[in-house]
Design a protein around this nucleic acid. Structure first.
Length: 513
RNA sequence: CGGGACGUAGCUCAGCCUGGUAGAGCGCCUGCUUUGGGAGCAGGAUGUCGUCAGUUCGAAUCUGGCCGUCCCGACCA
């Protein structure tokens, strides 16, 4: 039975937030758990995270960083050391106050109750981020300028008691990596901050096929306790912005608060300059919203746990075995002789005992880049039927099997390139220059307004007022070569649209997640 | 954390107003038919009705607390 209905309901145009949740469900990526605000990441979702981890971890190590691990629980007093930082996180901390449970049986009902006892003298905070406890370790580890730089990363979970959780985008507990480094000079620390910023930009582009605008946050939007916060901002399909990664130069704020000091080259005690930077499972939410369509998830090939799925077509019992054998043989050939981006092609033969149409749609919804069908007729003609997730579900291409085998890496790369180009075209079509205040105000009344690029010389208070009024924010002040169209940048004036003062640079405004 | 809606089978939901201990569709299992495709027919299994307490002879149904989900707002490194 053919129909032209989409696999996901509602579709994006009808109800974007609901569509997002349905995509996650249909692809079996994650689900809400019984713990408030926390998700269970299911194998198909966790597999994406594992690939993100592997590929990022490789790059961190190439740039000189080492992994370590620090405690989940942070003494409350540590958080109190840096006032601005403490305030920034105060409202979203889970606190551990007891260290044992007393078992009590209700005499009447026989039910068991667990009562927390053994109150702690000093409560612990479940880390919302680890600056303070890693800083405390750095203070012990650093004695001399010869101990610097210290380049540490940890893969960990953190917890922020979010008021409005959303799968992957904002969960109470989430997985991330947090880099923490300490340097002898400001210059070195800033170079580190920018280097990681660039690394994130490239990772998003080259691995997740998401174009981002690299830029700096204004003072209002900065990480609590940072001197400079760099961000990579992605636009998703409802034209909202997602901060996909951040890299902070923390100055000497944390080193002074935590006494990360060392004897410098001239024999004088100096405070280290520190940085921190991170990306999280929010990247998965970002890639879902950036790429998926009304038939479900669309996975960028590099983070697809299965890049090619082979579906046997077995219309008759007597040819079944031959078809299955051909499928497994093709899978084995692809696995052992072909690579994509340095890794063996990840191939899967779907030999489940379910209808072919069902299999096909399952893999469409899961976003597998390439689907291959092989039936008795294809074996005879030495062909395969290829379908690509970046094309319409109904589109098929019959290819000579040997050509296909040769071409698989190119096809995957083509899908990646297509996805990136599509996302880039969408983003560019939805950022416009704005030089007039009236025009600026009018822009935000639309349903899903895109972003504005404006000249800007306002104060923090003026920025705050505009932000609150329209529920927007300056997403970033783009750095040089941020990848924005020259035509767009060319039409941004030199005079601030709000204050009339000479503009200090371009600001990108948008609504965000 | 404020305002609103909701919580019944794996999923989507009906039943609740007018209390008498559960239903549909989809999914699942079995069989037959079908087979380049999200199929059809027949039969079958599955629920301490979110949780705790109260009212009552009796609670999915009435009342209250708590927990959770979704939407709007505040918050969001």
């Amino acid at each position: 039975m053919s129909n032209n209905k989409s696999a996901i309901s509602p579709i994006r145009a009808e109800d974007f937030p609901e569509w997002y949740q349905q995509v996650i469900k249909a692809a079996d990526l994650a689900e809400n758990s019984e713990t408030r605000g926390c998700m269970v990441i299911k194998p198909w979702g966790y597999g994406i995270w594992e690939l993100i981890q592997q590929q990022l971890d490789r790059r961190f190590k190439e740039t000189g960083h080492e992994n370590a691990y620090f405690p989940l629980l942070i003494p409350l007093s540590y958080l109190e050391k840096e006032a601005e930082h403490a305030e920034g996180f105060a409202t979203e901390c889970a606190v551990v106050t007891h260290h044992r449970l007393e078992v009590r049986k209700d005499e009447l009902t026989g039910k068991t109750k667990m009562i927390p006892t053994g109150e702690l003298a000093e409560p612990y905070v479940i880390r919302p981020t680890s600056e303070t406890i890693i800083g405390a370790a750095f203070a012990r580890w650093v004695q001399s300028y010869r101990d610097l730089p210290l380049l540490i990363n940890q893969w960990a979970n953190v917890m922020r008691w979010e008021m409005r959780p959303r799968l992957f985008l904002r969960t109470a507990e989430f997985l991330w990596q947090e880099g923490h480094t300490a340097h002898e000079t400001k210059e070195e620390a800033v170079v580190e901050t920018r280097m990681i910023h660039k690394l994130y930009e490239e990772f998003l582009r080259d691995h997740l096929a998401i174009p981002v605008i690299p830029g700096e946050k204004t003072e209002n939007e900065r990480f609590p306790g940072a001197d400079m916060t760099l961000t990579v901002e992605a636009m998703v399909q409802d034209r909202k912005a997602i901060q996909a990664g951040t890299s902070h130069y923390l100055g000497q704020n944390f080193s002074k608060a935590q006494n990360i000091c060392f004897t410098g080259r001239s024999g004088v005690q100096e405070f280290a300059h520190t940085t921190s930077w991170g990306v999280s499972t929010r990247l998965i939410g970002t890639l879902i919203m950036a790429h998926s369509d009304d038939d479900g998830l669309v996975l960028p090939p590099r983070v697809a746990t299965k890049q090619v799925v082979i579906i046997p077509v077995t219309p008759k019992e007597d040819s079944r075995e031959a078809v299955l054998a051909a499928c497994h043989a093709l899978a084995e050939t692809l696995r052992t002789t072909r690579t994509y981006q340095g890794d063996a092609i990840r191939v899967h033969v779907d030999a489940r005992d379910v209808q072919g149409g069902q299999k096909k749609w399952d893999w469409v919804k899961k976003g597998v880049p390439v689907r291959i069908e092989i039936g008795p007729r294809d074996i005879e003609s030495r062909k395969v039927c290829m379908q690509r997730r970046d094309m319409a579900v109904s589109e098929k291409e019959f290819l000579d099997k040997e050509d296909f085998i040769q071409n698989v890496p190119n096809v995957l790369e083509e899908i990646h390139t297509n996805m990136l180009a599509r996302a880039l075209a969408f983003r560019d079509a939805n950022i416009v220059a704005c030089n007039e205040l009236e025009e600026f105000h009018a822009h935000w009344s639309g349903e899903n307004p895109g972003w504005l690029a404006t000249p800007w010389a306002g104060t923090a208070e003026e920025e705050d007022e505009l932000s609150k009024k329209h529920k927007i924010a300056i997403r970033c002040l783009p750095i040089e070569n941020a990848g924005l169209r020259a035509e767009l940048l060319g039409s941004v004036g030199k005079v601030c649209f709000l204050t009339g003062r000479e503009s200090e640079g371009v600001a990108i405004w948008g609504r965000s997640y």
